[in-house]
Design a protein around this nucleic acid. Sequence first.
RNA 1: GCGGCUAUGGUGAAAAGGUUAUCACAGGGGUUUGUGGUACCUCUGUUACGGGUUCGAUUCCCGUUAGCCGCCCCA
Length: 464
Amino acid sequence: MPFKKAVAKKPKVEGVVDEEEGKKSAKGFPELLRGFRDILPEEQGRWNLIRDTVRSLAESYGFDRIDLPILERSELFLRTIGKGTDIVDKEMYVFTDPSNRSVALRPEATASAARAYIEHGMLDRPQPVKMWYMGPMFRHDRPQAGRFRQFYQAGFEVFGVEEPIIDAQLILIGKKIFEDLGLDVQVQINSIGTADCRQTYLAELVAYFRQFRNKLSEDDKRRLQKNPLRLLDSKEEGMAELLAGAPQILDWLDDKSKEHFMKVLEFLDEVEVPYVLNPHLVRGLDYYSHTVFEFVLAGDTGEKAQNALGGGGRYDGLVQLIGGRPTPACGFALGVERVARALADKGVNPPQFPVPQVFFAQLGDAARRSGLRLFEQFRAAKIPVAEAAGKNALKAQLEVANKMGVQLTLILGQKEVLDGTIILRDMESGAQETVDAKKIVALVERKLQRETAPPHVGHSPISE
RNA sequence: GCGGCUAUGGUGAAAAGGUUAUCACAGGGGUUUGUGGUACCUCUGUUACGGGUUCGAUUCCCGUUAGCCGCCCCA
């Protein structure tokens, strides 16, 4: 009974309710879990756009797709993300599986990518190894707009290159993705150096804030104890002044780190990616070193929550941390829901697939049968055709056609099947003509082109 | 995890401590047999869930759940 242990560990209310009411929620049926959501058909157009954009850029920059498991040993994340972090300490879905192993739903994928890199001996492949992924992540955080317990990330990781050019190229790719999506993002960048110089800096920072201890809020006092780096992006009252006088991490970087960072910035200048130096930018995962960056949605509400659409950085120590040979690496990830929301706010709402301009209406079984064949012909010609299977009355079918806003409707009845003809109706004018069924595909093709072609008369790649 | 706001049909809204809870839109079915964009009829809610106050609550109170906002944190 391995499950008993897990249940006993978490005597949460949900568990009790589940047992008593047979997994029913307040509504009387097993509804969505909090913080989880369905990505509905009407959102899929935007998601497709994001998926396609990410994929196409990944491919053009030579990244290979990798799919990583959703469940990993808890150990992987404890070691990499860090025990002191919120992600690990309070947001991870950890449980004991039926084989009595401690497993976790992945809160992010970089650790898995590094694990895969080691496990499949990718260090013996030509370096760098460049991979991208897209999939769900899980964090038991408090849900809010743009923040979910299951959310999707699209990520890019590069292993095996120390050169700062990779940092810059990754930032460039991220920037391009947003550009292609028509989103205006600001690149914020900082360097947190190596673990060593960070240590020295942290001591300095703590010493500085200790003098003002009585001025700090409870939250900030806690940060001072637990995670002093976080003081840098504290939004507490009065912190702005204190921060202005605080030591800056850039001044404490060793020469090598400094040089690395300068080069990243130079490369960014070279490819004309504007950036904002944000000395207060720190990231919540332990494994970062040197360059850290975020893509922040530009626009009116600069301080609005959840406006970071993506982020990443260098993690030279990660591979070694989980037991591989020391391997430099760098990467970033995008929050797909946040990107989708930004697109929605802009009114970007593409259809999930090309909207059919042709509707097929049939009357009777014979028509239905030959309609099946006709449908295939149109599919082969790559002309999407809509229909209303299940509606019998022509009137009802035309109603549907009208609602869909198609240009043309094909009407096939008993009589037409016998004659080998079909009626072609122009929905705008209502004009109808009876034509040879054999020529219908070509005819429709021509009619549709006349409606949509004019803009590009020049050299079409299809014209040959 | 902490604090605050909210919760009415698929969607957006309206209403009042008291008989059948309005309206618009969307959707399903129909107005008899082969023609749409304008009509008509009809259906779709135990007013989130549970409890309390009351003669009576959907309206007041409490709890739960969920969403949103702020914090924590992050994508």
